[in-house]
Design a protein around this nucleic acid. Sequence first.
DNA 1: ATAATAATTTTGAATGCTCAAAATATAGAG
DNA 2: CTCTATATTTTGAGCATTCAAAATTATTAT
Lengths: 224, 224
Amino acid sequence: MATSTVENYIKQIYLLQQNTSGERVSVGKLAAMMGVVPGTATSMVKALADSELVEYEPRAGLRLTRGGEQLALHVLRRHRLVELFLVNVLGLDWSEVHEEAEDLEHAISDKVLNKIDAYLNSPQFDPHGDPIPSARGKVPDMECRSIADCPVGRSFRISRITDQDSKFLQFAERNGLTPGVTIRITDRNSEADAVTIHVSGRRVMLGTSAATKILVEDKAARTR
Amino acid sequence: MATSTVENYIKQIYLLQQNTSGERVSVGKLAAMMGVVPGTATSMVKALADSELVEYEPRAGLRLTRGGEQLALHVLRRHRLVELFLVNVLGLDWSEVHEEAEDLEHAISDKVLNKIDAYLNSPQFDPHGDPIPSARGKVPDMECRSIADCPVGRSFRISRITDQDSKFLQFAERNGLTPGVTIRITDRNSEADAVTIHVSGRRVMLGTSAATKILVEDKAARTR
DNA sequence: ATAATAATTTTGAATGCTCAAAATATAGAG
DNA sequence: CTCTATATTTTGAGCATTCAAAATTATTAT
Ligand SMILES: [Mn+2]
Ligand SMILES: [Mn+2]
Ligand SMILES: [Mn+2]
Ligand SMILES: [Mn+2]
């Protein structure tokens, strides 16, 4: 029913809402993320509002409706299951699957999706640690903060990388910074804008903006 | 580069050319197969001619160029590898994969396609016995005729089912009529418009129009 | 409060694909 | 050779998506 353009907009709105923790999304931000001119976003948003996928207050911004959120979660489920399948079964690199999934997420039927889900044993997280919404739209919760604001001296488990850029993912992999890995934060220097961590022997230094993209949780936590 | 609409048209033109063994395809036939109104096909064909994918002689018909044929073979390769993957790896039924592949064929990158090909060990035929063009556009040749015009009394191996309709495929499967299976043609009655065959003990009667859809080859032939 | 600035919306136009219906060409029947 | 049935093309229009550029509104600085 929904075109892939609509699915992409809705997914992006969902992701923007996540960052700004629930506030209304601005048309400008949306346009920027979608790589379109602002006027294009405006007219698209009007169409989405007509289909009752978003609530739209001209000049104030927009927010997903319940239906919009469900669609977003369904797209995200397809995207992330596909990513995991490509990595675990077909052996693609985690740095390249995001692009692939960007197209496949619109072409996978529920029938195939369920087979993939079963094949992978109903996983909860994708290769980047992103939560995979369930078929009913439940998102596995994960309480985690970024390396950028973790106390020095403690150990953590990497749970998620929040940047799909393939250069960054390759860098992370080269340095052993992948979900599940245990790291120890050994130093933070706010003047130098950097954090030092230890990961399996190695010492790695990260600038704050890179550190922000790596989320961790307490050593004790989750089964993954 | 090519939209999925263009890919679908080009693929369909290729398939029509196969049937009519190389003659020019008429716009009307194409429109019918694509499920569009004739005028739509005319304007699409003009666009395809502008992109040099077909040679078009108004009112006389059209034919794929070399480039068009290559595109068709590439789409067909994706379609058929996907079908086989869905059946062999994800366990979908052969009667349902055609529909699935119809969308996926446009969303699979070469990178993923190569992984699938390797995973399946570079197969030559899909679940319906359709030949899978190689990455370089070579089509595995198969010399086969339909059950409808095979001599009575001899044995053959089923090599291909040329009908994607899921009801027909389910019927075929129920009666053990799948590629690789050996059958024996025991009777033909042109008045009754029917053929009788034996397949693993069972006796099956087929009307000519059904028999035409099942292709066989000499018992001796091919490694599959 | 006014003016400058930034964000947003509107307008007008293009592209790709489609349909309905009218116009035209072609082939076969008489 | 003329008429008619059939296939094909043309015309005019709509939908989804996009851009460029102009118009409008909201925000901020003075
Ligand atoms: Mn996408
Ligand atoms: Mn991911
Ligand atoms: Mn298709
Ligand atoms: Mn097939």
